[in-house]
Amino acid sequence: MTDTSTALVETPEVADTPAAIEKVSIIISKGSLEEIYPGLIMANGARAEGIDVNVFFTFFGLDAVHKKRNEHIKVATVGNPGLHIPTWAGGLPGVSALMTKYMEHQIEGLDIPDIPEFVQMISDTGAGLYGCLASVDLFGLERDDLIDELDGIITVGEFYEMAAGGQIIFT
């Protein structure tokens, strides 16, 4: 009897180059400066590559699209080991404001827009911007509390429908 086991092993077809990413859905879930910028940079950068983009703002990430709060986004100075300052020092009055001012200065130096302008620009690139319904309800917000560029307030189910066929990035 001949051994046929090798014939049963299928060789998966491997493409020479991986398929290009055509769509991303980016979730911004936190409200500090260092947690909002990366998502915005990824969204803007994806549009620059011609990739379709939806950005979903949930929980404290909603502050990035909150009319009154998006100009006052702060760096988290407590519990942020990346800053290399002692936690007790990060909690002192004024430290967060000072660190935020410093970071904003650095960001401006690189010609990266501030958060309200950046969100506006991302909207202009044709990306979809959405707020999370559960978070809007949780924080007792109204549609008017959020910027006009927001394309809608949607459920998580609607988000998944919108994200179908693309990649999801959670930040």
Partner: peptide
């Protein structure tokens, strides 16, 4: 320039840039 620089300095807005070059203005 990147799209941001184009939008700020070329005299064509970011919105228009994406209409002219839908699949990535600076790149295309």
């Amino acid at each position: 320039p990147t799209v941001r620089k184009l939008g700020k300095t070329s005299g064509v807005t970011v919105k228009e840039l994406y209409q002219l070059f839908p699949k990535g203005p600076a790149k295309l």
